[in-house]
Simulated scan of single mutants.
Amino acid sequence: MSANTLSHVAETAAPETHRPNQRSTTAARVRHALGLVARVLLCLVFGLPLLFMFISSFKPDLQIFADLGGIKAFLPVGDLSLDNYLGVFDRVPFAQFMFNSIMISVVTVVLGVIVNSMAAFALARITFRGSSIVLGVILATLIVPFETLALPLLWWVNKLPFFGPGGFTEGWLDTYQVQIIPFIANAFSIFLFYQYFDSIPKELDEAAKVDGAGWFRIYRSIVMPLSGPAVATVAILTFLPTWNQYLWPLMSVQSEELRPVMVGIDYFKQLNVSWGQIMAYASIITAPVLALFIAFQRSFINSIASSGVKG
């Protein structure tokens, strides 16, 4: 067979060889395009309400309702001003509310990370009889809604002793600690830490014990430094419900100087309701939540993606 004949056979056979690769490439492009469309749709579903809230915070009430029927509701057009934001500070003691929420949330997150991680460390790394039963009881509390416990908890905190400026008094109502201490221990946070700690090789504990380290040293110097994604996840999941707490402060706090930002929304529902000011208030109190997620999003996503498996 001549060289020309061989080259002709090779040229005619080549397309047949590359067809499967072309089909797989086309399928991959289609999957990529569908995934991109799905992500865009999800962004619209979750992002448009936030965009509407932010844009409406610059509009007067009449224009907000006039723009509801069209695309103008999501566009910064019309009579835009900062009057709603200025009205927020005139209508409520916003600085005090913001300070209270930040202080309560930060303290709850810090203490929650410490307490829940130590409880999970004991269950995951220290072998003792009945540890599985203890973990099961802790997880069983997740099925009990907070609304069921609110009234009994309110009665209990009203009976607890409190050391204040005037000495010991009875009752924690209308204090900062009543908004912090009941929410430090969290069953879901303990479970997250437990899953993550259980995936860390226990040979590290044995090596540390040979060097004379105790359990607290192992927890502080070995396990916790390796658990950054779990800490970030617990911090976000603790911060969100604490920041959004409404029912409990409404029941347990009466003084205006102790109220968090969520209770402050009620001030805008009294007398003349101003929807523009409500949108401005909601935009301001949403900013810390977005900032926290942006700061810890990489660790949060890594923790969720790994599903408790340390790689």
Rank of each mutant, 00 (worst) to 15 (best):
A232F: 14
V137R: 02
A207C: 05
T5G: 12
V144G: 00
P15S: 08
K159S: 11
T242S: 12
Q195H: 09
I133W: 12
Q254K: 12
V106D: 01
G78I: 01
G136K: 06
V77F: 04
L151D: 05
A33E: 07
R259A: 10
T12Y: 13
F216G: 05
D61H: 02
V289W: 05
M53W: 08
T233A: 15
I143E: 03
L123H: 03
L142Q: 11
L68F: 14
V273G: 01
W275V: 00
L62V: 13
Q177M: 13
S221M: 11
L75W: 11
S101H: 06
F128R: 06
D79K: 11
F89M: 09
F183L: 01
V261D: 02
F193L: 02
A95D: 12
A185L: 13
V261W: 05
P229A: 10
A95Q: 11
T175V: 01
V9P: 04
P20Q: 09
R91D: 03
F239I: 02
R259P: 03
F197D: 00
G308T: 04
Q179T: 07
A140V: 02
M1T: 10
L240V: 13
N244I: 00
D174L: 01
G70E: 08
A10N: 11
F97G: 00
P225T: 07
S105I: 01
L247W: 12
L142V: 11
F183V: 00
I126M: 12
C43P: 03
N100L: 10
V263M: 09
V134L: 14
T169P: 01
W155D: 09
A232L: 09
Q297F: 03
L62W: 12
I200K: 04
Y85F: 15
G166Y: 14
S101Q: 05
A3H: 11
L247P: 00
Y246L: 13
T286A: 15
A27K: 15
K202Y: 09
F52Y: 15
S7W: 14
L34D: 00
L68K: 01
S199Q: 04
F296G: 12
M1R: 11
T25C: 11
R19N: 10
D211F: 05
V144W: 02
N116V: 03
D211S: 06
I278R: 02
A3Q: 14
P60H: 06
S7R: 15
Q254C: 00
P93M: 06
V234F: 10
T26P: 08
L41W: 07
M98L: 15
L44Y: 04
M103N: 02
G35Q: 10
H8I: 15
L41K: 02
A38I: 10
L139A: 03
L50I: 14
S227E: 06
P249K: 05
Y176K: 10
A213E: 04
N158S: 15
Y281G: 00
N186L: 01
I190N: 07
V253L: 06
P161W: 04
A280E: 04
Y176T: 07
R31D: 12
Y196M: 00
I133A: 14
S7H: 14
I180M: 13
T242A: 09
F191Q: 05
